[in-house]
Nucleic acid binder design. Structure first.
Lengths: 144, 144
DNA sequence: TTCCATAATGATATGGTGTATCACTTCCTA
DNA sequence: TAGGAAGTGATACACCATATCATTATGGAA
């Protein structure tokens, strides 16, 4: 398993897709590049009162389409976004206490998928693997 | 990998948790026991015009808490429910064409989880593994 | 079998998350 | 630096799910 944490360049990802550089996008992107936890659109919007809610949602969507952020499912099924730190295929583990999101690539995951794909009828077209952890050390404290 | 398809008894699952047997619940449960595809709460509600939407949602929630149905994520992140056919821990694969949901238990999945758990800091408390497939033969037709 | 406390229901209001609309503003290119 | 396209903000809207609350049905007890 390898963990990469290269600094993301979200604005570049947007520009590559033909999006313009604007004040609102810079504000969003600057905030996100410092974020190591998962975030919700609403929370992000609250952190940026100078940017309208609609623009926050639009920008997250654009970042998703650019592959610069990932949309993952929290343990309760709600959506959490996370800045992608590798350009490669990966999975996530989310701390259920502090919300930290880490990416990982694990050969065993891909091996498992191949092994299952061979056993079920039809073709596997996509998959979702998410782990929920209590990270250690956890900024939210050590209480269970 | 093993696939089990024992006939579920949803009403019993509700009664076991202290819920009463009512006309509405019987209608919902009868419909669900015949369903092999995933379903959304809205769709179920439309299929049962005699039962109020609120009751459909409440009953699905009760079935979830009883472990008789599972809530899974569709490929686009939206929620799909599925009647659980085994009482045991399992994962799902969903046909992206026809919506059929199958459960599977795969030793390789659990092996993978153990292997990853050993490599990441902290404790794995839960996980989610979902496969999206084009099932074969697929009632929705063979076109990709 | 009837009674009755309580669970369940239906109708509707409300909340949360995300998108559509549209007049106005900003960006970038020529 | 001018003009057209892209972006923005405010707000309305859509969708999914839960909360509320007066009314009704259920199932155990008398």
């Amino acid at each position: 398993m390898e963990i990469q944490t290269s600094p993301p360049n979200l604005m570049a990802a947007l520009e590559d897709r033909g999006h313009r550089v604007t004040f609102s996008r810079k504000a969003i992107v600057n905030l996100l590049e410092q974020k190591h936890e998962g975030f919700t659109a609403e929370a992000l919007s609250e952190e940026l009162p100078s940017v309208s809610r609609a623009t926050v949602y639009r920008t997250i969507k654009a970042l998703l389409e650019a592959g610069a952020v990932c949309k993952l499912a929290a343990m309760d099924g709600s959506h959490v976004y996370s800045v992608s730190r590798t350009g490669h295929h990966h999975h996530h583990y989310v701390c259920v206490k502090c919300g930290a999101v880490e990416e990982f690539r694990a050969a065993t995951v891909e091996r498992m998928l191949r092994s299952i794909a061979a056993e079920i009828p039809g073709q596997v077209v996509d998959h979702r693997v998410e782990l929920y952890v209590a990270c250690d050390p956890c900024p939210a404290g050590e209480g269970a």
